[in-house]
Design a protein around this nucleic acid. Structure first.
Lengths: 352, 352
DNA sequence: TTGTATGCGTTATCAG
DNA sequence: CTGATAACGCATACAA
């Protein structure tokens, strides 16, 4: 890689270091260090002098050296999940992006890693923690009896989850660990009420099989609203996620007579939409609500429950950073938080 | 952080280090180091002795210390792009996942960062390179006169792009920098031929406005195939990406009389599909081809050009790692590579 | 084959 | 308010 010196006029100087700028300004090395970490400790004459030199040479502290000394990497771990359906997966993408942005604002970076299953994820924690000294982890997709959170807690590793610790009676308020979640039940509740206010009397529910935390939660919201409104609450189909399944289940619901439909995902909603059209029940298309407000729903014009992902990401990072930087002071914000989603009302594109 | 010693029975031992396991086994510190970096240099009796101890205490080398010494972080940078349309965005997600997995196999991790535009991305390179000592970068979405690649090249920072250096006559073979790309033109070419073989005579093209590398490339493929086949090649609409735009443009194409349609994205294809149905031209839906083979296309049953993203990711990582670890030996693989996509033929779900 | 010395860039401790 | 000294964990000549 022998670059001829004259060829690179721009920046042929060696990488600036604490030492080099100390020499250049005639102060000692730790004065420079102090200036960076605790500016008030250094008096005015030297302060600007050193500051100017720092800017002049474009000095940036070495994360490795700092990490070696402070045992902090300023790195947060995030596991990449397989794209899955992809329609709903876009929300994962959105979360990652929001987390990255917020972490950056707080002086942290995200280290992403792939893991096939939860066991592999735990192994990754261990490895990343030991070698790369990750300061904490951001979890997604918590499920019943989640092994990951247990492991992390046992090892006293800071983390915050997107999703409640499901499977506990007190899931919605449980403080077994820090978490931020979206109140899915409130979303379906709201959807039912919106539909009912528009005149729907037989509102169907198209959800996931019993057993998934988020799915059950959304089902509960449907139940709650229908009962409160005195509407039938047995127009229910619960199937695995996916377009095809949505279409099939919707056809059964259609046969039983519904005049509106709430779905727990946009994949299912899209399938239902197709079924409605296929069955010549186009008038129902405007009374269909999906979940996640994915780009597909926006494009096709399906109403959907919009989750405040960016807000959730902000809180997750803030909470985690607090746990890392002030391990034994209580966080300024609630360590468990249920955020409310919003129903985005729209009607299928007229051409569609 | 005062944890009572007796409370934590599990692992109260200090973090194992090169020194600690050297002491425990009675050898010197660098013997242990050697064992790790060049196992052959240490003789059999000691080898297993030390190895056992390493496993016993679960020793893992400190990345920070190693990085400080070797000036290598084993970290690769990847910029998160805004989700955008989201339909097409899922391919970005897929790429990131594949890159992460391959990097892991090669002993590297991905550091993701957010940047609003290319200028911010360059600033991020500089910062991440200086502080976190990233070994290299993975670029996506190269465009005409890309500033990022120029900057990286000037600063001799290893990188590989997903996308050609557009805007050069020799884009398809240009070696101005390492890149892997999908041969979009081959994809549309293939799509046209497939459609023609099935009897289509007036094949339309729904693409992006002139000026985007990938878009022009795909248009070229269409042109090439139509001319070779003696088919009209002027049934063209070029609009900004999106469902609505796709629907509108498709209606114009429909009016001009087409019997098949090739689109440069699944968003556009989905819009076109809607338009076809809305216009009572359902028979055309089976002769529609999108691009990227996104989950939406799979769900709805739109044919689509599938890009070998995983393959591309594998090559990108391998190439970049080679550049990092063997800066002046030529890479074993071609530093620029055009991968062929595959047309996934399907027909719209019958219920849809 | 194994051990000794030294330095990577930073922060912490404790003098002056 | 400033500066000397030590240490973080590892790798790399070099010497034995």
């Amino acid at each position: 890689m022998a670059t001829t010196p004259e060829a690179a006029g721009v920046q042929r100087t060696a990488k600036p270091t604490l030492n080099s700028i100390a020499r250049a300004t005639g102060v000692s090395r730790q004065t420079v260090s102090n200036l960076l970490n605790d500016p008030d400790r250094v008096a005015e004459p030297t302060r600007t002098l050193v500051n100017d030199e720092i800017r002049r040479v474009g000095y940036r502290p070495s994360a490795a050296a700092r990490q070696l000394r402070t045992r902090r990497s300023h790195l947060l771990g995030f596991r990449m999940r397989p794209s899955g359906d992809g329609i709903n997966g876009s929300i994962h993408d959105r979360l990652l992006h929001a987390l990255t942005a917020r972490a950056h604002e707080r002086g942290y970076s995200l280290l992403v890693f792939a893991a096939a299953d939860d066991a592999a994820e735990i192994a990754a924690y261990q490895e990343l923690r030991a070698t790369n000294a990750l300061d904490g982890f951001l979890l997604t997709g918590t499920n019943h009896g989640d092994l990951r959170s247990d492991w992390l807690r046992e090892h006293a590793i800071p983390f915050v989850a997107f999703g409640r610790p499901w499977g506990r009676e007190d899931a919605a308020t449980s403080q077994v660990h820090d978490w931020i979640d979206i109140d899915g039940g409130a979303g379906t509740d709201d959807a039912v009420r919106t539909l009912a206010a528009e005149g729907a009397a037989r509102i169907g529910f198209l959800g996931w099989p019993e057993g998934s935390g988020a799915g059950d939660d959304r089902f509960d919201g449907y139940l709650r609203a229908c009962r409160a409104l005195g509407l039938p609450c047995d127009l229910v189909e619960r199937v695995e996620d996916g377009f095809e399944n949505g279409a099939e289940a919707a056809s059964r619901l259609l046969a039983r007579g519904i005049d509106a439909l709430v779905c727990v995902s946009d994949s299912l909603a899209l399938g239902a939409l197709a079924q409605m059209r296929g069955s010549g029940r186009e008038e129902l298309m405007a009374h269909l609500v999906g979940f996640d407000d994915t780009p597909v729903a926006r494009a096709v014009g399906i109403s959907s429950v919009d989750q405040p992902i960016e807000e959730a990401a902000r809180r997750m990072v803030d909470l985690l950073v607090h746990r890392i930087e002030h391990p034994d002071s209580p966080p300024p914000q609630n360590p468990v938080e249920l955020l409310s989603p919003t129903v985005r009302r729209r009607s299928p594109a007229n051409t569609y």
